[in-house]
Design a protein around this nucleic acid. Structure first.
Lengths: 349, 349
DNA sequence: GTATCTTACGTAATCGTTTACGTAAGGAAA
DNA sequence: TTTCCTTACGTAAACGATTACGTAAGATAC
């Protein structure tokens, strides 16, 4: 509607003063008279003056934008990570730009490229399962853009990292199954490439050994997508053998949900015949039948922490101070439901 | 690491030509000699020149950023809308900035404010349930920032709008229940404030009347949050009466999942005693027991369309051409599962 | 040979704001 | 009275790229 937005120049001209004086007034700089300041504020208010952020960003070479790349938004875990990121970012005056890689390395590359064009001040990324080469991230760093990795991290580069204690989570989950008297515990693991499922496997193994149980090779299955379909098929496969497991610990919740379906279809009882345990505590895990016991990750808090680390790093770089990369390991917690504990209460939790 | 990023000036000086010549070369402008152009490209490549987008955005007063505000990321529907948005935005060279209102009007205001500071080129918004006043959006429009409303829209302002045919979806869902021979159909609706649940109620009512069935007032229940907990409680309430419904059509999937739980807890059979139908086809709906029939919304496509509309509007405004606001109504489709059809197959879908 | 056109550049201005620096006016200190 | 300091401004430069405009050199036309 209006011909153009109000500029400092418009205010300056109308008051008969110079542009820097208007700037000083509006920014509460010391070198400005009380009277002038008052007049400037009043006129700015009257004209609905709004700073032109393009000019300011250009001057400061700073966008106040944090880029976030995650494999999939629809995952409950990532949705919550993002919520944590957005909430915390706002407190520090940052906006959040989002991109999803759909677990594709090429797509991840594109995201980084797009973000680079958008002049992000920092990048928070959870790597796609197919990302091996991290040169695109090193390149960002070399352009002075801080990178913080979260959950799916790479050991091939130095950066701040936030992971949760997958090992301990899996260890305690397994220990819980053992405490129920289970002795032949199966494990369905992932592709072992993203660091996470490998750690979960190691935690499982460690608990088994620690408690003097046997590690049955035929009870350890690997599947690539750790999806519900794969969990279903893999479990059917497990149940086709003559010696059945009395518990299954799955590296992800979807896998576990598939396992539950397979066990039910086989006419076996959960948890009496076979107890089932998942990992990540997806929203849907509380509503399957029976509700699934799982390992809960501090998703929201991880997102919050990511913003804390990245804003700190941005500030350090801006001040030309040395940056020390930390790896934060966050604790998981067990969420126990009917798939291991059996039926107890009637009301939904 | 490097002292500063490479600028046109650096290239110009090294080649002994002027800055505009370098600019013309890199932008493939006509007024430049072949030889010079080649030299510029070669040196730019060698020095890893990258345009400074801050300067370009400043010059053009354009950010290539689309702001997106939705109530909740964790909702399956919105996750998919966002996916559609991000995918399509990338094709047009736009980045997506995300904010969630958590169904709070104040938070929505903050989001708009934050986005305004970030100089978004356009806003795609799905209103929070508590948003009545839309002055914050009108204000954006008056600053020449296009607004596209999606799903939760307001009739209080003119803008492009994308909704799905809630009426027809509910109509067909109800008709499906009727086709199963159900005669006493209950409906659990929402707060009726967001346009969506009201339309669903109207579609339900229309189908009932059209087929000559009775509309039992005691079978129509309202709940505010349309959550699983409320669905559970409301259904228990319904089942406490002596005359039971033989089907329940819920305005949302979580409500329907709560209803399923309540019906199961009461020892009744689904769908023989009571069939259950939801709306939105959440991911979790396919894994509850029994799997829930629902009305699927074209979430991804809605997001895609939103980008199409907003980029068109941005371009029109930029060219000072008149903008015509359209409302796009997208079709829903029925997803029929065991909660209405009964058990048929064993393999998970 | 003079007039005109085209090609390939350079010069200068511009986008809006901030900041380093200079300076006039007024007061305080000697 | 002279010197110095403080206050409150104005001037100019800068951030990096684009673009309108001007122009010299060479080609073409008459």
């Amino acid at each position: 509607m209006s011909k153009h937005n109000i500029r400092l120049k418009d205010i300056a001209e109308e008051l008969g003063i110079s542009i820097p004086s208007v700037s000083r007034a509006l920014n509460n700089k010391p070198d400005i008279g009380k009277e002038t300041k008052k007049k400037v504020f009043e006129l700015a208010e009257k004209l609905h003056y709004q700073r032109n952020q393009f000019a300011i960003n250009f001057k400061n070479q700073q966008s106040f934008i944090i880029g976030v790349i995650i494999p999939q938004i629809v995952h409950h875990f990532f949705s919550n990570v993002i919520s944590g990121i957005i909430n915390e970012a706002e407190k520090s005056g940052y906006s959040v730009m989002l991109y999803q890689s759909n677990e594709s390395y090429e797509s991840e590359l594109k995201g980084v490229e797009t973000f680079q064009r958008s002049m992000i001040d920092g990048l928070i990324i959870s790597l796609s399962d197919n990302t091996v080469n991290v040169d695109h991230l090193k390149n960002l760093q070399s352009h002075n853009v801080p990178v913080v990795m979260i959950d799916k991290v790479s050991h091939k580069m130095e950066s701040a990292k936030i992971i949760c204690d997958d090992f301990k989570g899996a260890y305690y989950a397994t220990e819980h199954l053992i405490s129920l008297g289970k002795k032949k515990i199966a494990h369905i693991t992932g592709s072992l490439e993203p660091y996470t499922t490998k750690e979960r496997y190691k935690g499982f193994e460690s608990a088994i050994r620690k408690h003097g149980l046997s590690l049955y090779p035929h009870l350890i299955k690997k599947c690539n997508l750790v999806s519900r379909e794969e969990g279903y098929a893999t479990t059917l496969n497990l149940l086709a053998k003559k010696e059945l497991p009395d518990a299954i610990f799955c590296a992800t919740d979807p896998t576990a949900i598939g396992a539950i379906q397979a066990i039910k279809d086989k006419g076996l009882k959960i948890p009496e015949d076979i107890a089932v345990m998942g990992f990540s505590d997806w929203k849907m895990s509380s509503i399957v039948d029976p509700p699934l016991s799982s390992v809960s990750q501090p998703d929201f808090e991880m997102g919050r922490k990511a913003i804390e680390l990245i804003t700190k790093e941005i500030q350090l770089k801006r001040d030309n101070k040395p940056v020390k990369y930390e790896t934060h390991i966050m604790e998981t917690s067990l969420v126990l439901r009917e798939s291991t504990l059996g039926k107890k209460v009637k009301v939904p939790n």
